[in-house]
Design a protein around this nucleic acid. Structure first.
Ligand code: MN
Ligand code: MN
Ligand code: ZN
Ligand code: ZN
Lengths: 143, 143
DNA sequence: TTTTTTATTGCAATAAGTTACAATAAGAAA
DNA sequence: TTTCTTATTGTAACTTATTGCAATAAAAAA
């Protein structure tokens, strides 16, 4: 698998960074959770484990992991930043009424991204976006 | 114009809310600025004017204006929330190297949004997104 | 105008996030 | 293994953001 603790160690060392218990702990929390977590959740879960981490370390480590493309961050609704292991590229559709989440394959977005690159000259980087909407169920209730 | 202080007053009263000096001040700051502002900027600018506002009021008022679709918020890079008056729908392309901003017409996104609505059954609401990338100039430097 | 209602604001306490810098420890070198 | 270098962490102070509740004032009613 391309998201194991072993992979983390390899990637970090390959770039000349140091493999610390703090980095491993945060990575493991994301690995075990599977899904998206906000920073406070990550801090709490990592606290539950042994060698206590401080907030600055959690925040800096998350930035570090994102920069090195081991973790991905998405802007969920209302300014929430959510983190998850960087596996396959995808995006999200979030129901603002009930909170349901639907994953969107990156291929579905790829076409519009390519079109934008052509028309603007920009080169798009790692975008992991969350679109807001109403799921079919909440649409019925709404009107 | 659909974004004047008069329009604000009309919209707020029509929905049975109260037109307060605080709401007007915040609206005016956004109106005069024209572009995107983060919350601390809005707080500072509104402080420069007369009847001092508190932070909670600024934050609550921005939420209020967004809910009532008088103001729009976008997730700029790294968790920054930026606010602007709700005029025509559009999106942004942001150069992560030099900070350049390019506006994307909503029509360019409309097609993919419509396609997603069809394939998922979700109804997409007011999305105002910022995609990250490298502008043509920064691409040259980069490699 | 004066009174009444209650949406909205300010206050005070708290939580979340950031920064600068000294202390620590991971990994390289001896 | 021991020493050395410096990337990384913790500490402490600070800034930004959120929350509950009492005080205020906008707008309706009298
Ligand atoms: Mn995701
Ligand atoms: Mn905009
Ligand atoms: Zn729903
Ligand atoms: Zn650029």
């Amino acid at each position: 698998m391309t998201c194991s603790p072993a992979h983390l160690a390899e990637q970090i060392r390959a770039k000349g960074f140091r493999l610390t218990p703090q980095r491993m702990a945060i990575f493991n929390v994301l690995h075990e959770s599977g899904g998206h977590l906000v920073r406070t959740e990550i801090y709490e879960r990592v606290q539950a484990l042994a060698p206590v981490l401080t907030e600055p370390t959690v925040y800096r480590t998350l930035d570090f992991l994102v920069e090195n493309e081991l973790v991905r961050v998405t802007h969920a609704g209302n300014g929430r930043l959510e983190y998850e292991l960087a596996r396959h590229r995808h995006h999200h559709l979030h129901c603002s009424a009930c909170g349901a989440e639907l994953e969107i394959a990156h291929e579905q977005m790829q076409k519009i991204f390519a079109h934008l690159e052509l028309s603007t000259g920009y080169r798009l980087t790692e975008n992991h976006i969350t679109l807001m909407g109403l799921c079919p169920h909440c649409q019925e209730i709404g009107d």
